[in-house]
Structures are given as C-alpha cells and as structure tokens.
Amino acid sequence: MNKEELIIETENLQKKYITDTVETTALAGVDLKIKKGEFVAIMGPSGCGKSTLLNILGMLDSPSSGAFRFLGQDISKATERQRAKLRKENLGFVFQSFNLIDELTVEENIALPLAYLGVSKADTEKKAREAMERMGIAHRRNHFPQQLSGGQQQRAAIARATVSNPSLILADEPTGNLDSVHGREVMSLLSELNEAGTTVVMVTHSPSDAEYAHRIVNLFDGQIVTENLNVRRHATELL
C-alpha cells in the first residue's frame, strides 16, 4: 500500500478507561490503515470498542498509547486547539442520534461548520443550499429538527457533515435510529459521497449497511480480528 495515499494510519492504538476501582481496556492495540477514497465499515458486538475507535479517529478522544497519523501527521500529541482545527478542516461526522442542535433551523445547523471555518456569508448560503439540495431537504430549510422525520433529520446531519467538503466522513451507526426504507436512503447517500471521492469510515451493527463498504473491519475485545474485502462492492467497481 502506498503511504502517500493513506488518510489514516494507527499503530498499536490503545485506550484504557480507569474508574475508581476498575480499569477497562476499550482498545487493545489496533493497527489500521485507511486509504483515501476508501469506504470502511467497522463491525463487532456491543462493547468491542467500535465507537471508541471512531471517536479517536475523529479526534474527539485521545488514545492512551500508540500512534495515530492523519494524512501523515502525528495526532497523538496534538493539542485540543490543533485537533479542533484539523476537525473543522477535514472531518465530517454523522451520528446515530443525528445530533442536530434543537435551537437552530435545518439551514442554520448545516451552515454551522462553515461559520467556524470563517466562510463568508454569501458562500455559506450557497454551500448550505447546495448541500440541502443534494440531500433533498431544501424545502425543509426553515424547519427546526424536531419538526422533521428521522430520515430527514439524518439527511440534514449528512448535509452538515459534508457542507465543508471534508476529506473524511465518520459515521457512527448512521441508520441505527431509522426504519429500513430511510436507512437504505441514507446508505445510498453515503455511498454516493464516497464515489465522489470522500473517504467514509462507518461503525455499524447492520450487515446490510456494511455491504456498502469496500472493506469490513471486525473488532472483538478491542482488537481487529478480521479484515475482509467486500467482494461484491469490488466486483461492481471492477465492472
């Protein structure tokens, strides 16, 4: 694998949680390499460390030990401010529970990342509108999150994740709170984004969602147990 193409590289990544009496190991030495443009699904039973791994990859949490390089840059020692900068410039997040801000309208939610990037007002409006149109929720722009269906909320969340054109999207059970129809819709959207060049890393329980990925990483007790290429997806692409 060519190093230039790597967006994420971890070596012996460990994460331990220490409470008053118990020490819990969430990640016990994860070595993972993800190339630019890849769509990777992380699977495994509850408590295997999927979300912890995703949070570390998303720079929302820091590892206890081990190396983590993002686009070749060592992140494990980065300050909160540096990580905030990397996040806003490169990453988009999609959550199971959507996590839209209740007090902001759909459009304002989507425009939020641009505000932290210091994008001009006119550009913000344009980009937010494009993102909404892409996700088919432009007609709901002035609604508040509670006024939308789950599927619409998740589309708004994806619009927000992609509005700043990030190179990596991290999705944590993006269909977990949706019915199957809306779930499929969301997966197609993520797939389209990936096809357009965005790297996607997704944590999921659902084998059918994992079908959309190029590669499936199986975690168990904080370690990668298997890594499978998704033959069908690769086959389609080869055709």
Partner: peptide, 16 residues
C-alpha cells in the same frame, strides 16, 4: 451539552 459537543465536533475550540 449536546450543543457544546456538536460545536466541538464541527470545529469549535474551547475558547470559542
């Protein structure tokens, strides 16, 4: 809390 978390996710640092 959710709002704070989200703002951080989309790139706000603590001082902001």
């Amino acid at each position: 809390a959710k709002e704070v978390g989200l703002r951080k996710v989309v790139g706000a640092d603590r001082s902001q």
